[in-house]
Amino acid sequence: MERNNLAFYDQQAAQWWSETATIFPLSKMNPLRFEYFDRAIPEWDGLRVLDVGCGGGYTCEFLAQRGAVVTGIDQSAACIQVAKDHGAAMGLTIDYRVGVGENLPFGDDGFDVVVCVDVLEHVESPAATVMEIGRVLRPGGLFCFDTINRTLRSHWIMIWLLEDVLRQIPRGVHDWQKFVRPEELEELLQQAGFSEVTMQGFDLFGRQPWAQMTNLMHFWQTGGFRVRFDQDTRVMYIGTAQWG
């Protein structure tokens, strides 16, 4: 079975904004993520923000509604077209491009913030992606990210439960070998020239294994996510880093 099968996102593109779509619960995660990001950036109005791996535009629209000047990029042309159409229908001005994180089609120092959520575990090269993100950030700009740790617990939740048992997402979307440990990402960030790296656990499913199956099913079906930030990074984690 193919792993890290990103064709799933092309297949979901047409239904991206449908409330019954498999992908739609991910739209509910932005208010939770930004509880963390807002600690570092309490005011987004007027900031030049790039969303790397924007899919059909959930985070881009969330940020545009908060007054940011938003650009989104994704390797899926189908998702980008859906994002353009939905943004226009919502009266939002967002610059969407097709491209990959390892080769961003932008000049140096062009953004105040780069957001990359639920993406680093899918890219071909996290190192090259981090380097490119640094290049397009202005000095002192901020990188906001979340991703999945490579642990036995993350395999249990993200692959065995979500893909194999509950079938909330198709089998093969995730590749456990591509999950990124926090210490690995911190090293990549520092090598690229980032500083002031902060990371915390991003808990959506509860820490007790006996309850995780029930929580996962409830959260994925209803979008009723709850969040806790703590020091337990064994599944998902979230963070920021300053460029330069």
Score class of each variant (00 low, 15 high):
Asn5Thr: 04
Leu6Val: 09
Asp10Thr: 04
Gln12Cys: 04
Ala14Gln: 06
Trp17Leu: 04
Ser18Gln: 09
Ser18Glu: 10
Ala21Asn: 03
Ala21Leu: 01
Thr22Val: 07
Thr22Cys: 01
Ile23Glu: 02
Phe24Arg: 14
Lys28Tyr: 02
Asn30Glu: 14
Leu32Met: 13
Leu32Ala: 06
Tyr36Phe: 15
Asp38Ile: 00
Arg39His: 08
Ala40Gln: 06
Pro42Val: 07
Trp44Ser: 03
Leu47Gln: 09
Leu47Thr: 04
Leu47Ser: 03
Leu47Lys: 15
Val49Tyr: 00
Cys54Tyr: 05
Gly57Asp: 08
Thr59Trp: 01
Phe62Leu: 11
Ala64Ser: 15
Ala68Lys: 06
Thr71Asp: 10
Thr71Met: 09
Ile73Asp: 03
Ile73Val: 15
Asp74His: 12
Ser76Ile: 09
Ala77Gly: 14
Ala78Phe: 01
Gln81Pro: 00
Lys84His: 08
Lys84Trp: 00
His86Gly: 01
Ala89Tyr: 07
Met90Thr: 07
Met90Val: 04
Leu92Cys: 09
Leu92Gly: 04
Tyr96Ile: 07
Val98Lys: 09
Gly99Ser: 11
Gly101Thr: 09
Glu102Thr: 11
Leu104Gln: 08
Pro105Asp: 10
Gly107Thr: 12
Asp108Met: 10
Asp109Ile: 02
Asp109Pro: 02
Val115Thr: 15
Val115Gly: 02
Val115Ser: 11
Asp118Gln: 15
Val119Ile: 14
Leu120Cys: 10
Leu120Gly: 06
Thr129Val: 14
Thr129Met: 13
Met131Asp: 11
Met131Ile: 10
Glu132Gly: 12
Ile133Met: 15
Gly134His: 06
Pro139Gln: 05
Pro139Cys: 05
Asp146Leu: 08
Ile148Asp: 05
Thr151Leu: 05
Leu152Met: 11
Trp156Met: 12
Trp156Glu: 11
Ile157Leu: 15
Ile159Met: 04
Leu161Thr: 00
Leu162Cys: 06
Asp164Cys: 08
Val165Gln: 12
Arg171Trp: 05
Asp175Leu: 08
Phe179Arg: 02
Phe179Gly: 00
Val180Met: 13
Arg181Lys: 13
Arg181Leu: 15
Glu183Ala: 08
Glu183Val: 05
Leu189His: 00
Gln190Asn: 08
Ser195Met: 10
Glu196His: 11
Glu196Met: 11
Met199Pro: 02
Phe202Lys: 01
Gln208Ser: 02
Pro209Gln: 04
Pro209Glu: 02
Trp210Leu: 04
Ala211Cys: 04
Gln212Arg: 08
Met217Pro: 00
Phe219Lys: 06
Phe219Asp: 06
Thr222Tyr: 07
Gly223Leu: 06
Gly223Val: 05
Arg226Gln: 13
Asp230Met: 07
Asp232Asn: 13
Thr233Leu: 12
Thr233Gly: 00
Arg234Glu: 14
Val235Gly: 03
Gln242Pro: 01
